[in-house]
């Protein structure tokens, strides 16, 4: 609105207040290219999805919600995202603490693992988990070596098989904000806690955790929201019995040939995910921590 006012303002006032109008022009040129891009790349697909969802005979949205496989997958995806979030936040916090307090070799080892995970693709990591979990894969080889098991393990493409892999995939997103927060923590506050007689538990509970809580929540929200859109890892490791919403959508389009239902489901998934993110963002100021 300020931009339109600035444009509509007579030339004389514009000349009298060069600073203010310079600032408006500046903002216009900086903000408009990204906004136009967002409009094209977000609104375009959304409109196309709505059109496609309405293209079938019946109400595709109602139909999706009546489909048992879809409703099941919604609950499964939510549960999966919740478990992955809790696990990554808890383990990720330990991981970040260990990097901050560990001896040098531990630090190097942990940072190395984190970087491998950040720098190699999700595809490669998922393939690694596959090879690990195949009936005669690497895990079986280790167990056999230790004389713990002699028959091939029936682990691949089960619910239990996909959780460790998904936790590993998402862990960096939980570690990084906590790590930044722990490293940047005010040393004098820790010294104060020590001097005033607090033991490790009181220091952690009353001084450290309240200070890094915000970072844990930011990481957790991001992991949760990204887990809702998980596709490749559950597909390869969880198998057909563990289809996430993304998997079901893919099935509607490529197997069932119901483009309208697939579009409706996509809208539900995008809408739900973005809504969850926005609510969490307003509640916990997640974006402010990241941006």
């Amino acid at each position: 609105m300020t931009m339109e006012q600035a444009l509509a303002a007579p030339a004389t006032t514009r000349r009298r207040r060069p600073m203010a109008d310079g600032a408006a022009a500046e903002r216009r040129w900086l903000l408009w290219p990204p906004l136009v891009f967002f409009l094209l790349t977000v609104a375009g697909p959304v409109v196309a999805l709505v059109q496609q969802a309405l293209s079938g005979e019946g109400n595709a949205f109602a139909e999706s919600l009546r489909m048992e496989v879809f409703v099941d997958s919604v609950w499964r995806t939510l549960l999966l995202a919740a478990v992955v979030t809790v696990a990554t936040v808890v383990v990720g916090t330990c991981y970040a603490f260990a990097i901050a307090v560990g001896p040098v070799w531990v630090k190097a080892l942990l940072m190395g693992g984190l970087l491998i995970s950040l720098w190699t693709s999700v595809m490669v990591r998922t393939i690694g988990w596959m090879l690990l979990e195949l009936p005669t894969g690497a895990l079986f080889w280790v167990l056999e070596l230790l004389h713990l098991r002699s028959e091939p393990i029936d682990f691949y493409q089960s619910t239990a098989a996909m959780y460790p892999a998904m936790i590993a995939v998402m862990l960096p997103f939980a570690v990084l904000p906590v790590l930044a927060s722990v490293i940047g923590f005010d040393r004098e506050q820790l010294k104060a806690a020590t001097v005033f007689g607090a033991g490790p538990l009181l220091t952690l509970g009353a001084v450290v955790l309240p200070a890094i809580r915000q970072a844990m929540i930011s990481g957790g929200v991001l992991v949760f929201v990204m887990s809702l859109g998980f596709y490749v890892t559950p597909l390869l490791l969880g198998g057909p019995a563990n289809m996430t919403m993304s998997g079901i959508i893919n099935g509607q389009l490529n197997t069932a040939n119901r483009a309208d239902v697939g579009a409706a489901m996509s809208l539900l998934l995008v809408g739900g995910t973005v809504a969850i993110y926005l609510v969490a963002d307003r509640l916990f100021k997640v974006s402010e921590r990241w941006g």
Partner: peptide, 11 residues
Amino acid sequence: VGVVFQSYALF
């Protein structure tokens, strides 16, 4: 010991 820190280090 009681310490007053430079930044005060109030929680």
